[in-house]
Nucleic acid binder design. Structure first.
Length: 258
DNA sequence: ATGGCTGCTTTGAGCAGA
């Protein structure tokens, strides 16, 4: 099973690119973030024609997440679109059980800057997520937590660690959240394998950041022990950041042996 | 050097992203 995550930064703008990518990569499950689209406008017919069933939780302008499931994979059950017990107007969560695997798709708040209210919201959100993930892991031995985490877990995930030290996406409280999630038993699938140095998943649109590889690795696929044991590969598709009208994020993909 | 892109929106300057 191939599980992927991609922050598309507007599904409306990115749909042609998404269609091409689905055709070339053929993931079984694709988790999307930043669809920026209300549910009534979701392009479910186009995706169905491309062989994907869609589940989504969107809103106008901001946020929005979706799960795409390839035809031939068992249908999604036990759909959830929020962190239980955490009141939130923002659409940042979608989870479902698909073919015996629990998939949780997160669009973690950005946080803006460490002195902002949005940073406080990010940490509150993440702490609510921690307790939910603990429950979900107890219920679902085969669990994947994917998405745009807006956290670069270590200095090696940052193009210039000194420039970013203490800044939002890299601050110690955010990194502590990431470590808390690993301490629940989740594995960072990217780090299960040897990876090229300076592999990132996001590059700013400005200042030629992509050609200079001034990026961060903030998009992740975490796996429960049972899934990690069967994981055979994880890579970031840097090619998807190239060309006309790219998202500022590249997709991350894992392979799980049956 | 506090900008620099991109996408969105009560269509056009301001917000948000990261």
């Amino acid at each position: 099973m191939k599980i992927a995550t991609w922050n598309v930064n507007s599904l409306n703008v990115r749909l042609p690119r998404l269609m091409d990518w689905l055709a070339s990569e053929g993931p079984d499950i694709l988790c999307l973030q930043e669809t920026k689209m209300e549910d009534a406008k979701f392009p479910r017919h186009e995706l169905a024609a491309a062989g994907y069933a869609a589940h989504y939780a969107g809103q106008p302008t901001y946020n929005g997440v979706a799960l795409l499931v390839r035809d031939g994979i068992a249908g999604a059950t036990d759909l959830v679109t929020s962190i239980p017990g955490f009141a939130d107007e923002q659409k940042r969560v979608i989870a479902a059980t698909i073919a015996g695997t629990r998939i949780i798709d997160f669009y973690v708040p950005n946080g803006q800057s460490v002195d902002s209210d949005k940073y406080r919201y990010k940490l509150d959100w993440c702490r609510a997520a921690t307790s939910w993930l603990r429950d979900e892991l107890a219920r679902h031995p085969a669990l994947a937590v994917t998405g745009d985490f807006n956290i670069a877990p270590e200095d090696r995930d940052v193009h210039d660690p000194d420039l970013w030290r203490g800044q939002v996406l890299c601050s110690e409280p955010e990194r502590a959240v990431f470590r808390d999630w690993l301490a629940l038993g989740l594995k960072d699938s990217f780090r299960l394998f040897a990876q090229p140095e300076k592999t990132f998943s996001w590059w700013d649109y400005r200042q030629l950041a992509f050609p200079k590889n001034h990026g961060l690795r903030i998009d992740h696929i975490l796996l429960s022990p049972a899934l990690a044991a069967k994981c055979t590969a994880c890579r970031i598709d840097r090619n998807a950041r190239k060309g006309e009208k790219p998202s500022d994020h590249a997709p991350v993909m894992t392979e799980i042996a049956q």
